[in-house]
Design a protein around this nucleic acid. Structure first.
Lengths: 142, 142
DNA sequence: ACATAAGTGTAGCCAGTGCTTTATTTGAGC
DNA sequence: GCTCAAATAAAGCACTGGCTACACTTATGT
């Protein structure tokens, strides 16, 4: 592999990582709205395991990215784009967990690892995962 | 899932990400030493797709982590710990790529996605991958 | 020895993502 | 309507990890 290709690979991985945080927040805000009708900064912070100021900053970035809207001292809400992203992320998360379980990873571990893995799964890979599971739903385990 | 569990998941993913950069650099420095006898800052930078100052900073962090040693204007070398990490990372990378290919991901895509995925694959999951491939080396494709 | 090019280091800037500390706003209870 | 607790915001710190610009070292060629 040439250095240029290697560099491209790393740059792509870095870009994916940058997106990952936004994806996590969008997904979680979607969850919170579904569960509690609205997403408050405090709830977001609690669930992400960070302090409120950190959550506030993250929301600011999400607003900048056009994924959410919010008004001071009011809840945070997903834009159409944000909601679409949240849905997509959630579906991908499920697929990754299912794939891991299908190849024999214990469910709890699959859930844990998927949190990091999912952000690096390309559309191509996701399709392959789905195709694989359609073909061998239980991976013929045992 | 409780908020605490969710937070723990995210914190774990964040910790994995912090380690990922060190792993990438250690692996690549190992590659360079193997290929060219030594790892120069410029080579590291070129292959990572970053500028030399960035590579220099990364090497400084690696030194702080005890993974490499270096003297000004001389090459960078892995410590025993760094070499062990590089070996481990390289093996894991291969396993992840192979697993992806085994479930039907195109090889080039597998290589690309593995770069990001590998850092989030726990030992448990890695073992499951190996067991899966031992059982179905070609995943019965086609 | 000296000039020059390549490699390396350093300084300073920016953005992201965490933190703590300190206002401010909101909303509930009196 | 005032007070107070909770929620939110704002500001400042630290570290990572990019960058550019500039200084310095090394190696090479004359």
């Amino acid at each position: 592999m040439s250095d240029e290709q290697a560099a491209e690979r790393f740059n792509q991985a870095r870009a994916a990582q940058a997106m990952a945080v936004l994806e996590d927040y969008a997904e979680m805000i979607g969850d919170l709205i579904e569960e509690m009708g609205e997403a408050r900064i405090t709830d977001i912070a609690g669930r992400m395991g960070v302090t409120h100021p950190t959550a506030t900053k993250a929301v600011a970035r999400l607003k900048r990215a056009g994924l959410v809207i919010s008004r001071p001292y009011r809840g945070v809400f997903l834009t159409e784009e944000g909601a679409a992203l949240a849905t997509r992320v959630r579906a991908r998360h499920r697929t990754v967990v299912d794939l891991l379980v299908a190849v024999g990873v214990p469910p709890e571990t699959a859930e844990l690892d998927a949190e990091g893995i999912e952000h690096h799964v390309s559309d191509t890979t996701l399709e392959a995962f789905e195709a694989f599971m359609a073909k061998a739903p239980t991976a013929d385990r045992g």
